[in-house]
Write a protein that binds this DNA or RNA. Sequence first.
DNA 1: GAATACCTGAGC
DNA 2: GCTCAGGTATTC
Length: 278
Amino acid sequence: MPELPEVECVRRTLEPDVLGRRVARVRTTLPKLARPNPRSLARGIGRRVVADTARHGKLLIMQLDNGSFWTIHLGMTGQLILAGSRPQVKHIHITVSFDDGGPRLYFRDPRQFGAMTYCADQEALQAGPLANMGPDALGMSRARFVERLGGRGGRLKSVLLDQRVLAGVGNIYADESLHMAGLHPLSRPKDLATEDLGRLHQALQKVLRAALKRGGSSVSNFVDAHGRPGTFQHAHRVYRRTGEPCPVCRQAVERIVVAGRSTHFCPTCQAGGVPPQP
DNA sequence: GAATACCTGAGC
DNA sequence: GCTCAGGTATTC
């Protein structure tokens, strides 16, 4: 599932292949993935040139030559494919062609949780795809991180996953950073020392950067815009490793459910931060 | 703040 | 043929 590092890898591999190109046509076969609707999306980005690419959290943002924006959220299984002809795979829902007749951009999404959105201006971008989204997690200062999380009463894992608090962290990097920081997923930020949150900040930055360096984590068949998988899944310490020995202390990794999400942790290394209160 | 709905493929 | 996976919007 694409989280911040995976989306950034897609952006980096996509950018050289779309920058400066003029969109010719947008064809949508699954209307709900095109926002506000297939017609507006096609009319909005049609004839426009991609002027720049950016990312905020898990959202991919293309700035167009008239000051409008084209955003892509990959949801859980979204994938962008650049190819000269339609790939022989199922679930391609939107096709973007360019006026140079070169490779087309295919949006594939088996689980249909993603979206492609047209925003007429900066205000529409803020009010739409970026609404309720906190600051980007990558590169956030320790002070800002502590300020954003500190004092909250929810479970630490839930807070990390809350895109309003900080944008970009999903289930993989939440579990991995909590393990690295030695904090229990059920602990509450309000019960933690500033030093604990500081350690979590450092762990999160470290794990996001390491994942980025290795092309992201390829679970759910993630691949970048060039079709290449990442390798960071091999470095996961706890995520989806229930029953396997913790790489630090050899204690078996446990799995619980927090905020409706499977959560993996080492009961020994992550006793820090408070024994879970019911 | 927490549960539920949306989806389909992978893995039993 | 059933269960589970999960990002986000919605609902209680």
